[in-house]
């Protein structure tokens, strides 16, 4: 599958519209696709991602569920064993924990424990980010947790283009794919082709080329890293390459390693917490596979290691921002 078909008709659409287009196209493509979640239908989605879908596709394809995550996600998993493809919205991924047994036990292990007789073609999607002034319970970033479970796939798109292409692939995938979006990105506009396209899972993208430092990141941290890279280049004459993982599991090890072998410097930036975080995994990968290429220890910048703080100015400090990225990057040289 080509990553990008030559796109001739680009237009600017918002991240949430890109996800919505993916959902609509897959509803139309496959009669087994059903969207379900809290407020996804008549309310048009808590974050308007599913706006208009219920009106267009009706009760059967777009289903409002009660606030009952363990119930409806488990139900979706059960239906998927029989070939239905539920795309289930978590209003926040912070609510995953009330459905934890279904999400990481049933979804991740049934295929294995059945000796490969069953597969679970579900998608769970929704925002997973801090930075919205809502306090700790609604600000979790569990991508590292999910990625710890063999059997699950974890995707964190940073741009509208990636959000659409990865969502379409996720829905067609025959394994459980958890797509972690970001409320701070829903309004972000970016180029998306008119033509249909998909992006394979497990393919990172070099979002910016450079020669001195590799910043690897996922989700919104990619955008902060790109901004930092611009400043580093303009003000500090550092040529920074930014690698966007896009999917954390499966992981595109080669793209990361190729970049590090070129720049000899690696920094991981993530909005999740550092302890046992994604950056820890990537650091291990780099030191074990490209140790001899490193001119400095692998650096890491994560959210400050505490529950998400409510107070707005401090919350902005808690997450990695371009200023902090620049600081850490300069410290490597």
């Amino acid at each position: 599958m080509a990553e990008t078909e030559t796109a001739t008709n680009m237009r600017e659409i918002a991240y949430r519209e890109a996800v919505r287009e993916a959902l609509a196209e897959e509803i139309e493509r496959d009669e087994n696709v059903v969207i379900m979640g809290e407020e996804v239908a008549q309310y048009n989605g808590a974050y308007k991602v599913t706006e208009g879908l219920w009106k267009k596709y009706g009760d059967k394809r777009v289903v409002d569920t009660p606030i009952s995550e363990a119930g409806f996600i488990g139900m979706g998993i059960g239906a998927s064993m029989l070939g239905i493809r539920p795309v289930m919205e978590l209003m926040f991924f912070s609510f995953a924990y009330v459905a934890w047994d279904q999400i990481v036990n049933n979804a991740a292990t049934i295929r294995y424990m059945s000796g490969g007789l069953i597969n679970i073609p579900i998608v769970i999607r929704g925002p997973a980010n801090a930075g919205t002034n809502v306090g700790s319970t609604h600000s979790h970033t569990p991508e590292n947790l999910f990625a710890n479970f063999p059997g699950l796939k974890v995707v964190c798109p940073a741009t509208p283009y990636d959000a659409k292409g990865l969502m379409k692939t996720a829905i067609r995938d025959n394994d459980p794919v958890y797509v972690l979006e970001n409320t701070l990105l829903y309004g972000l506009k970016g180029p998306v082709p008119e033509e249909e396209y998909t992006i394979p899972l497990g393919l990172a993208e070099v979002k910016r080329e450079g020669t001195d430092l590799t910043i690897v990141a996922h989700g919104r941290a990619v955008l902060s890293s790109l901004k930092a890279a611009e400043i580093l280049e303009a003000e500090h004459e550092l040529s920074v390459e930014v690698v966007d993982l896009r999917s954390i599991r499966p992981l595109d090890e080669e793209t990361i390693l190729n970049s590090v072998r070129k720049t000899n410097h690696a920094l991981y930036v993530e909005e999740t917490k550092p302890f046992c975080g994604v950056g820890a995994q990537i650091s291990h990968l780099i030191q074990s596979q490209a140790f001899d290429y490193l001119d400095a220890p692998v650096a890491r910048l994560s959210a400050i290691d505490a529950p998400a703080i409510y107070s707005d100015p401090l919350e902005k400090i808690q997450l990695p921002n371009p200023q902090r990225i620049i600081q850490v990057a300069l410290g490597m040289f």
Partner: peptide, 30 residues
């Protein structure tokens, strides 16, 4: 497990299979 015999497990967590049972029925109804 024996999906060919419509036997969907065999689940180790107490109560964990009950939403899946609803899901099997959901698929039939769908």
């Amino acid at each position: 497990f024996a999906p060919d015999k419509h036997y969907w497990g065999g689940h180790g967590i107490v109560g964990g299979q009950t939403p899946l049972g609803a899901g099997l029925a959901y698929a039939l109804k769908y």
